[in-house]
């Protein structure tokens, strides 16, 4: 019944063409449908790899080993589902968060973490906004630093350890995608982790918190404290206020 639709008048002529060329010829149909769905994507995506694509800047450097480990935790916990990393060029957003987010600030972000929802506040300018100890306490119990917060506690990050071999594998893969890590950086992942982790542990100690350089929380703090920092410095260097 359904495919025996009765049609009439001008509809008949129009329909006859479609029936003959497409409906009676499945290969033809599939080829033209494929062409139809490819055009938009090609026009929009291919230019991204040309100068018409997002701007890049030498002012941004790749994440350190510890920041890569922290970023993996950020991705794994699904932080992006509640927090954006994307300050829009609007007055209220600049007042609330800081300078709006430039394309080049994301150039080493794999995967991107712009987010699509703000259940909690934007994090793109959170780097250096709070002390390391604030982040430590906030992840342990969000309500201790932000009364009334609805964020879950991430207390297990305080005890979980990161594996240097795992971080090295990440950096090797990131280098394959195009992140410019040097051979020395890849070779010295373990020392780099210990050094940057040690600095954070030292600052935590000043605040009366005992931790160790290989804890997941330390890596996450390293990543959060990096967010938006390169961009902010580059904008200052260029004399751009926001």
């Amino acid at each position: 019944m359904a495919d025996e639709t009765k049609h009439h008048g001008s509809e008949k002529k129009y329909g006859q063409f479609h029936r003959r060329v497409f409906e009676a010829n499945a290969v033809n149909f599939a080829v033209w449908a494929t062409i139809a769905i490819l055009i938009g994507g090609i026009v929009e995506i291919v230019p991204m790899f040309t100068p018409a694509g997002p701007e890049i800047s030498p002012d941004v450097t790749p994440y350190t080993a510890l920041e890569v480990a922290g970023r993996d935790i950020y991705v794994s916990e699904g932080c992006y589902l509640c927090h954006s990393q994307w300050v829009r060029p609007m007055r209220a957003e600049i007042l609330r968060y800081g300078p709006w987010s430039r394309a080049w600030e994301y150039q080493y972000d794999r995967p991107f973490q712009l987010g699509s929802r703000r259940i909690g506040p934007d994090l793109h300018r959170v780097g250096n906004k709070y002390p390391d100890a604030w982040h430590y306490e906030h992840m342990r119990d969000p309500r201790s630093t932000s009364p009334g917060s609805i964020m879950p506690s991430y207390a297990w990050l305080l005890t979980k350890r990161i594996d240097p071999a795992d971080v090295e594998a990440s950096m090797v893969a990131l280098r394959k995608t195009g992140t410019p890590y040097s051979d020395e950086e890849i070779a010295s992942v373990e020392q780099s982790l210990a050094a940057q982790g040690g600095e954070i542990v030292g600052r935590l100690q000043v605040a009366g918190i005992e931790s160790e350089p290989d804890r997941a929380i330390v890596a996450l703090i390293a990543y959060l404290q990096r967010l938006g920092v390169d961009g902010r410095a580059a904008l200052q260097k260029r004399g751009v206020e926001y």
Binding site: I45, F49, P54, Y106, D109, R110, L114, S170, A173
Partner: peptide, 23 residues
């Protein structure tokens, strides 16, 4: 590009990655 059996990094970065994902 896989880093381990459980983790990989996209070949695109930043805004290009965002565009491909939202496409």
């Amino acid at each position: 590009v896989p880093a381990t059996f459980l983790r990989s990094y996209p070949v695109y970065s930043g805004m290009t990655d965002a565009l491909v994902q939202w496409w």
